[in-house]
């Protein structure tokens, strides 16, 4: 999309589509607590803003909001069902939100613009970005993150 005209209020970056996170089962590491079962999370989403200040809304296919996560200046709030939780750790609330693990939000904002960005442990494949497809893999613990943007 064309860069915003100088002086115009920068059109806030926003994306919507579907997101799926799969974390593979892990065998129990030598004596380190019990292993982890495979976990999966997928939903429709709307994302706006940037890594410092933005929001992520999750929806079910019929259009109801499942949860809303907002963050700004190092503080994050998760609204879901009847309760609201706040934390200084966006990762902690993402873990609660997906129930399957955290999502590399900072890197995600770059990936969505088709810009490679590093996120510890994640490798992103942006070859499908023209069709609104992103997939990223993490090795330890093994996970795949897939996104299909709705045009």
């Amino acid at each position: 999309c064309a860069p915003p005209a100088p002086g115009a209020r920068a059109q806030e970056d926003a994306w919507s589509g579907r997101i799926a996170l799969q974390v593979q089962a892990q065998a129990q590491a030598q004596g380190e607590g019990q292993g982890q079962a495979a976990q999966a999370f997928s939903a429709m989403f709307e994302l706006h803003g940037n890594a410092d200040s933005g929001g992520l809304v999750l929806l079910n296919p019929l259009g109801q909001r499942l949860a809303q996560l907002d963050w700004k200046d190092g503080h994050a709030q998760l609204h879901s069902g009847q309760e609201t939780r706040s934390s200084d750790s966006l990762d902690a609330l993402l873990q609660d939100l997906t129930g399957a693990g955290t999502i590399p939000v900072a890197a995600l904002f770059s990936w969505l613009k088709g810009i490679q960005a590093t996120a510890t442990g994640w490798q992103a494949d942006l070859s499908g970005i023209a069709d609104g497809r992103i997939s990223a893999r993490r090795d330890d613990p093994a996970a795949t993150l897939r996104i299909a943007l709705t045009r």
Binding site: L59, L62, G63, Q64, R65, Q68, H79, G81, Q82
Partner: peptide
């Protein structure tokens, strides 16, 4: 359908 966030479908 009205949900608890005020979203309407």
């Amino acid at each position: 359908i009205l949900d608890n966030f005020g979203q309407r479908s």
